[in-house]
């Protein structure tokens, strides 16, 4: 279920990325953003299935070899799971570094596929660096927004509990 949900989410992310690419001059790598957020959180047994589903779903929309995503995602996962054990994962700078690493790892996966002749090799231009930098900027913002939402949900739940306690029953 985790895998199928992530696969669907990956396709939707890929479609959102296409929409961004056709309308904006520069956009973050949404697959790398999702990968960085997934890998900077708590690890569980389903993380692998989620990451694989996400990468396969994103590759469906990119018209790039599926190997580029699996290879790049594997490099990102190896690096980030190792990094998570030695750095403080909750800091914003770490989140940004995770985003940058994920974006560069996906680009590296694509480059390796280009070396193997599966996709055209494209020279790096100044504009090629905007995507990893934007990804690095977006990951901490989304992480902040996510933790803010979680805090608000917790606060709402606490307030609901307090109201129940003071009224002695369910609120209307």
């Amino acid at each position: 279920m985790n895998f199928l949900g992530a696969l669907l989410a990956g396709v939707l992310l890929g479609l959102a990325e296409i929409a961004c690419a056709s309308r904006l001059p520069a956009a973050p790598d949404l697959t790398a953003v999702a990968l960085a957020l997934l890998l900077s959180g708590d690890s569980s047994r389903s993380t692998g299935a989620r990451c694989t589903g996400l990468l396969l779903g994103a590759s469906a929309c990119a018209l790039e070899p599926v190997g580029a995503f699996l290879l790049g995602g594997g490099i990102a996962a190896l690096l980030l799971t190792s990094l998570r054990t030695i750095v403080f994962g909750e800091s914003l700078a770490t989140k940004a570094a995770f985003g940058l690493t994920a974006a560069l790892a996906l680009a590296l996966g694509r480059t390796l596929c280009a070396w193997a002749g599966l996709t055209p090799a494209l020279a790096w231009e100044p504009s090629s660096f905007t995507t990893p930098l934007l990804t690095a900027a977006v990951v901490p913002i989304l992480a902040l927004a996510s933790s803010g939402l979680r805090r608000m949900a917790r606060w709402s739940a606490d307030r609901l509990g307090a109201l129940r306690g003071s009224d002695g029953g369910a609120p209307e």
Partner: peptide, 25 residues
Amino acid sequence: DPDREPRAERWPAGLLLAGAATLLP
């Protein structure tokens, strides 16, 4: 907790190998 995996994770290496397999000629 059965959903927690404290040991070193092996799936990133599996993902990497699956990607590398597609590069084989």
